[in-house]
Design a protein around this nucleic acid. Sequence first.
DNA 1: GCTCTGCTCAGAGGA
Length: 905
Amino acid sequence: MNVRGRIVEVGEEREVETSYGSRSLAELSVVRTDDTDGDGDGDAAGDTDGDADPIRVTLWGKWTQSAELAEPGMDVLVTDVEESEYRGETTYGTSKESYVVLEPGFLVDVTNIRSWVQCPRMYYLNKLSGIPLNYPVVKGTIVHEVFGDLLRGRELDESIDERVREAGLQLGLLGYEADEVRDEVRRNAAAIEGWLAQGTLTEEDGWRSEYTLISPTFGVKGRADALRRGMPVELKTGKNTNREPRFQDKIQAAAYALMLDERGVPANTGTLLYTKNTALERNEETGDLSPAKEFSIGKGLLDFVVRTRNQIAAMEFDMSVPTGFEADAKCEYCFEKDTCMVVSGRLDQESKAGQIGKPLPEAEREYFDRLYRAIEEERRETHAEYRKLWEQTAEERADDDRALIDLEPYPEPDDRREIEGGRWELRARKPDDAVSKLREGDVALASDGDPVSGHAELVRIERLDDEVVVTADEPVTLRRLDVYPSELSVDRMLTAVHDALLKGDPDRKDVLFGRRDPEFSNRSEETYIDNNDAQDEAVKLAVDADDFALVHGPPGTGKTYTIAQIIRALVADGNRVLLSAFTNRAVDNALEALREQGFPTDEIVRVGTENGVREDMLDVRLERSGDPNDRAAALRDASVVAATTATCGSRVVREQAFDVALVDEASQLTEPGTLAAVNLAETFVLVGDHEQLPPVVRAENDLQTSLFERLVTDHPEASVMLDRQYRMSQRIQAFSSAEFYDGELRPATGEVAAQRLSQLPGVDENALPSELRDPVSFVDPDGRRVGNTNPTEAGRIAELVDAYEAAGVAPDDIGVIAPFRAQVAEISRRTDVTVDTVDRFQGSSKEVVIVSFVASGSLDGPIFEDHRRINVALTRAKKALTLVGDADALASDPFYRRILDWARR
DNA sequence: GCTCTGCTCAGAGGA
């Protein structure tokens, strides 16, 4: 039996005499959160605030080490407890089989356990700074890929050629030639091949490569290089002159064994494959020619893995920083010693290696701590997403759009096909009505129906319509496809903050931290845009900025056009420019405008995945694979590099340097997200509108305010607001202008102000029902909110769409906006025009927009509290805007009351 | 109570 719950009290470790001799123990008081009453309804869950009686759990032996790390408030799981009666009370204790897991909901990566074993500071430093582009790592990756290819039966030379080619860009940036890399990889691969050839591949040896594992019990996730007869095999391209495998390597393999145990397939042996070892070991007295080192994995080693994992989880629980004293690693031989000392010196952290240099100013350290915490909170939320893989039923996940279930694989053998490189293509039929967040190009978790304890593979989605097609390293029966969460964006935020503070230019930091004001020099006498003063001013400000310039662009004010003008002016001045934005769509829109203005295509490079980059920009997309020198030159020689901010944080782009970084959608970016782009340039230009949607973050924390908003507020003198809008009629823009832009947003021309539906070809305004005659109208369908839908309202909206169409408006010119996805679905069922959430509508517009408010009775809910979202909804329409909702509900709130008054005027 | 885009995923190593 297992015990799971929330710790309320932690006892001191003490020695007691038992029948086995003297043993140490520590007691925990735990309020159980697992289902203890056996009725299966789980009603004890979450009931941790003290009305349930705590139970006593005794941790014996080395588990007392984990007890020392335990704190009230932590979750704990103790497996295979022994139950006993003591003075009428049932108590629990660890048995020989037990594991004690602190904060099992916190998912620790196997590689993190590995680096913690080397040194806890190493774990911290890796997390903070990421691993920069360096040759040993790139080469190691290639050797691993070749290893996987060999296991899948691929021909060696073909594999090496392709894998080296794929790494072309990285190798080129590092200054390596393809030939020398191929030779080196071949030497490493020879060791692998020789070992594989020792009679093992001919028999049924049960090999498989790249095995993804997630452990709900132990709070560990990771990916094993390979399994052989169900036992973990890890490949290491480094040197190891000892007879024994390195301890941290053993721990890595043992961590995979632990997760295999949980799945009921015990692995008592681990293998480490050191590819540089053949020549070295040939001379040793053992006569062992093999690069493989086997070792046995017993319960003691597995316990050690779990205790190490607990150390990490406990440290992350209170977000403290490891000092290095947690382990007995020796600093004098450490590669990271200098980095370690600099980081601890700058951030004023205690560390075993000591400190070098002066601490950062207090304001910077506070900023670091604040964002570090916020980012780590975000990481927790990502972990919660992983947990849903097993905590939610398949149906719940499907309802949440996080999984496609009940896929029907084609009858064997048509459900799978071996493709190039020994990989697999898998196919299944998708139930008609199934929808999800998954998109073509995504990485997802494919499974036989159970993604955690069943057979699951990480796959790439190739096609997603009535048929599902995915590619995978190994075949699986394709019955279910789950969203696979990623910590990537969290990791990149952390490195962006690290780079900004620890590697950033002191001059830049002086402005960012308000120690001096942003400076401008009078470089430009030119007029860039002659029919719009604010746009022209924006270009001037950007060109003149020595630190940064801010362009505030309300809806329809020609932001994209201005961005293209700014980039052209900057490049004309001899600058190398990084163009970035939160979404791929915004990056491509800006590039499109740039190209339309005649900017030479051969000076542009678009960095991004094939699926992310829009089709019409693929011709300038940077192909990563190819000849190293050629690939590196393609990137280095471009005067404009365009990429999302997430890609700016990637290893390759992080190596680049620019004169200016221009970031669009800056108001939708977290501060670290913006820093990822801004870090790479001397000066920066941020374009955005903080009166529209803020950054999307999972946790409520300091990431919700964008750098754009902070700087606009602190330095209005460094900003220009584009005040002429080219989208909406006067009547439509009036509310937004008054409420959000101090009345300063105006139509650019009389034509814009006076535009009417009747100007559209074939439209007869008189054919509209009277309630829709005004450019802004309000309709109360007298509906009721049901969950996040309002079916009556949805029905009425379909009728309104029909009315517009009957008056001659083309379906393509009509858009419907609703606050909830559920209502979007409800309306979509009844009409063929575009229906979407506010969030997805940001950035686009339609001639006619109908907004569904859904709410009835009251306006409770976060979606209505953020008025910026409403601003977006109300500013998508050019000629006609119809609001549909419950008048009484809207009138109950002053802000919505004003909307009502405006619409019914 | 809600909105939801990014990114190959995670891991690849030095002495």
